[in-house]
Amino acid sequence: MQLIINGQQQSYNGPINVQQLVEHLSLQNKRIAIERNGEIIPRSSFSEQLLNEGDQLEIIVAVGGG
């Protein structure tokens, strides 16, 4: 299954949910937020959200800025 994560194409052996993806990326204890195809995925529903072929994900953090 092909996903586009932060603009990069990534291959996964599906099916995979958002929580599993987060763990695969070693982001499970990080302060992040995720958007899928333009819609925010609430953190509480990560493990219920199954990813689909071609999904575009944005995974963001807070960084220094003014």
Partner: peptide, 18 residues
């Protein structure tokens, strides 16, 4: 603070501003 894409697949031990 600014909002930016996180690094994926690397720097998993990177410190976080928060």
């Amino acid at each position: 603070v600014a909002i930016r894409r996180t690094n994926i697949g690397q720097n998993s031990g990177e410190p976080n501003l928060l």
